[in-house]
Design a protein around this nucleic acid. Structure first.
Lengths: 163, 163
DNA sequence: AGTAATCCCGACAGATTCGGTCGGAATTCG
DNA sequence: CGAATTCCGACCGAATCTGTCGGGATTACT
């Protein structure tokens, strides 16, 4: 049971964009360097994030990517659904609209087994729904201009002084 | 994010063994037929379950497999750990003793990202720790001999009358 | 003893996904 | 125009998934 590096890299990408939020578009090359990740691979990931409306792209020179809205309005479940597909520990327990997949469940013991996957799915979904990108962005880089953003540490995040 | 069919098939296998608990060893062929799964593939899975001490094998004619202890003493987290490996949504967030893998976490934003995977891992672990195989065995087949086992429906399981 | 049933076990293999790479076209800024 | 950057499709090696195959070892029954 594990997520792929798509999820890992994609989340790290989003965190970087979160730190840069309010500073206009950032180039992929910049982020790839900061996170030490292969830029061509990030391209694939960021394009799906763009298609999902989580980031906005600006083409041409001085272009790049930026969050489509503030980090605290981006639930992590949305990010991971884009990167990893629907939260579905098993086909018969997807969390997206394609619930019409039920005809596959005609096994004898399937109904109760299904119950297990649904429990797991709900546990993950609930956890993810309670987190936003802001929970993962520890230090916001100062914006170029504009009001100073108050560093609001969510109650769900442990005190950084302990780390 | 998904489990493989190893987990699916293995759990179904365990459920079948749960239904047959108290009736001596059951052959894999029998279970493969009941669940309509490829027997040679089940062999692989059941052997790891045996190595983990969850099932006991009896060789020779009239041999087969049976649970090593009652279904309600088999936590589902143990089953899935055997079948799918440690509950680790990401390398840096495993739930097993190999926590010495931390040196890989030296990235800038990694610490906070790690927090996400740990949250997910804990959500899954907690859910799985609260379930035993008995929660997935709806109808216990009557044992050949011995006292009648009371059908104890755990509070966590929804009323079957609703299904 | 012989035979049938069954587990045991290792090797193989096709399909799919993972984790990228490469090259170039399109767009925009200076 | 030229440099920076996104956009996009094609390709690719390696690993994993999902099995299959063949035979050996062990036991029960007759």
């Amino acid at each position: 049971m594990s997520f792929s590096t798509k999820g890992e890299y994609g989340v790290r990408l989003m965190v970087q964009l979160g730190r840069r939020y309010g500073r206009g578009p950032s180039s992929l090359a910049e982020i790839a360097t900061d996170e030490d990740l292969p830029r061509p691979y990030l391209e694939q990931l960021v394009m799906s994030l763009r298609d999902a409306g989580l980031v906005i792209s600006t083409r041409g020179s001085h272009g790049g990517y930026e969050l489509s809205r503030p980090p605290d309005e981006i639930p992590m479940i949305a990010v991971l659904r884009v990167l990893e597909g629907p939260i579905a520990p098993m086909i018969c327990a997807t969390d997206e609209s394609a619930s019409a997949h039920e005809p596959t469940c005609d096994r004898t013991a399937r109904c109760t087994v299904n119950f297990l996957w649904i429990r797991i799915r709900d546990a993950i979904s609930t956890t993810l729904e309670g987190m936003t990108l802001a929970d993962l962005v520890p230090e916001r880089l100062a914006p170029i201009a504009g009001p100073i953003l108050v560093e609001r540490r969510p109650a769900s995040l442990p005190d950084p002084a302990l780390a």
